[in-house]
Design a protein around this nucleic acid. Structure first.
Lengths: 343, 343
DNA sequence: TTGTAAGCGTTATCAT
DNA sequence: ATGATAACGCTTACAA
């Protein structure tokens, strides 16, 4: 019924194809393809012609066709343990900002701090043959580990630093961050120091460990002053734990919270109960979240380079995907203690 | 050099293809395809055979090939104006939770409250031939509108309710929410009521409009008491605007903030300056973000059904994509005034 | 109900 | 440096 011969140069869908661009530019499709991909072997003159033609037709590659022809998807999978924590948002934004301009599609998976969920996401997303993987931390199920290994997909680990070899990671030492908080409180003369952590993911635990070790070195460690709960971190929980701690151990005069939302909740609760911060008890948070600098009193916190971690991890992955040798497999992005009024 | 004839049944990549599954099952590729897609016209017996074969080979479709052949991807694009606002996180999570189990890949785009950026994202993502679109609000560039229209991709608009016809949307009336805040403050006896908004996206403006109209009806509208800034909403900014307003208009005794982070900042700043809330000035926020209930004093706010909106919008889109008739094109999910201690 | 044939839009390969 | 040709793995016609 349809008399139109459907040769390569005849539009079928509403979208312009590479062949049309090529025709308009007066070259072959493959040359157009090369020109658009910035392959060096094309004459500058032709490149320009093709680019003009592409613009005129408003051409956009068909990613499906490209992926099929090249046997390479252009997607990168990013797995984070939480989104309700603003922490990871900054990192994701940074990742997007480096990967998207390079033509990568980024798939975000949130595993809600659950090992099983991470494993599932991994299984599902690996089916898309992603070009790269951006994962959070090192704590995962054995079979997740195996899937990553077997998939052979380049992978960069974010947030923490691994002692092991051959792993690409971008982050900072969680233990050292914990130790820094401890040393700061000690140096200010606080004597009875507590650590309060929620969520109990590996990094929270590591922070606690660093805190504890520094306390032990200073001969100030009291195991009773560690309050840990697997409940998700939140402002409300912070207030609750603070109250609980101050009731059970009134001598506490300094607290390091594993995350700023907990610390913020503590500050608010302290205000509510008339407990003076930092006079009666000092408070130090972690991550330096947006509101912290505006709390009453302004919250001291450890600022983490979340944005930089995302950017660097993505750049590192770009290298790996390109097959470039990796100069620095482990990149320590550090952290910064922000001393404000709460400690 | 390579002697292997590359016919349809010879493995090239590491992954099994549909043809291999078909061969193992003893059927033609197209039958295997139909069986795997659950197309009714295939004999139950064959379906089972094919499924077994697929499982044995650990077959997973190649999404690129599928997309290319069918001119349809399995991806849904979600565009939000911000991620640093916890608001949209809840919505995204809900969307994920309904779309992922149905086999859809969800692509998130953040346009940072920029019309241009939204237009760009749309252009780029539309290249993926997404099956569906989930967009935020109705305020966008003319060419973005045209692209959506021209793409012919099913689309559901979130967060706001449109007066127009033929649009699928899930949200609540922003104006009515603003009016509710006004009526509440009026009913409590506050006289000099201000609206403070940042970001100035359409919904913030609409909220302000609803607030103003309710004030006008009550004969309490004072145009001087509207403080609007395009700067991004944040706790810090909230404190700043609060101070500015209280200095320039000391008579103000009630403020409605366009977002909770602003209101939280105001509360903190009030505390810092010794301004009593709600005695000297009442404060009402918007969105009821996580920390608000724990502020000092506990913040009154309008709770928005962000999670429900995400879920419903995704379900609605599922219907549209399946070609089902849409029973309710516009779904009002309402909102709830949470009266606490700040008003 | 099943199969055949022909693309989908791009890129790899191998010529020229 | 450019081009012809043949895939890539799947699905849409259409035929049987």
């Amino acid at each position: 019924m349809n008399p139109t011969k459907n040769d390569k140069n005849t539009r079928t869908t509403g979208r312009p194809t590479l062949s049309e661009v090529a025709r308009l530019a007066g070259v072959s499709p493959i040359t157009a393809s090369r020109a658009l991909r910035g392959i060096s072997s094309v004459a500058t003159e032709l490149v320009e012609k093709v680019q003009r033609a592409a613009e005129e037709l408003n051409y956009v590659v068909n990613p499906a066709a490209r992926a099929l022809a090249s046997a390479q998807s252009h997607s990168v999978v990013v797995l984070v343990p939480s989104l309700s924590n603003l922490l990871f948002i900054d990192t994701l934004e940074a990742i997007h900002s480096v990967l998207r301009p390079r033509g990568f599609e980024v798939l975000i998976g949130n595993y809600h701090y659950s090992r099983d969920e991470e494993e599932n996401l991994l299984r599902n997303y690996l089916a898309y043959q992603p070009r790269g993987l951006l994962l959070t931390g090192f704590d995962r199920s054995e079979s997740a580990r195996r899937m990553i290994e077997a998939s052979n997909v380049p992978c960069v680990y974010m947030m923490d630093l691994d002692p092991g070899a051959g792993v690409n990671c971008v982050g900072f030492s969680q233990q050292s961050a914990g130790a820094t908080a401890a040393k700061h409180l000690i140096s200010r003369g606080y004597k009875h120091l507590a650590y309060v952590g929620a969520q109990l993911d590996q990094r929270t635990l590591l922070r606690g460990e660093g805190f504890r070790q520094a306390l032990q070195v200073a001969g100030r460690y009291d195991p009773d002053l560690e309050l840990l709960t697997p409940r998700p971190s939140s402002v409300g929980l912070g207030g609750e734990l603070f109250l609980q701690l101050m009731h059970s151990h009134p001598q506490v005069d300094g607290i390091f919270f594993g995350n700023d939302d907990l610390a913020q909740g503590a500050l608010l609760e302290a205000m509510r109960c008339g407990i003076k911060v930092p006079e009666q008890v000092a408070v130090v948070g972690f991550n330096d979240l947006p509101g912290s600098a505006f709390m009453v009193p302004r919250l001291s916190s450890i600022r983490t380079p979340r944005e930089a971690i995302g950017r660097r991890a993505a750049e590192q992955l770009l290298n790996l995907m390109a097959g470039n040798p990796v100069a620095q497999p482990v990149q320590d992005m550090g952290f910064e203690l922000m001393v404000r009024d709460s400690s």
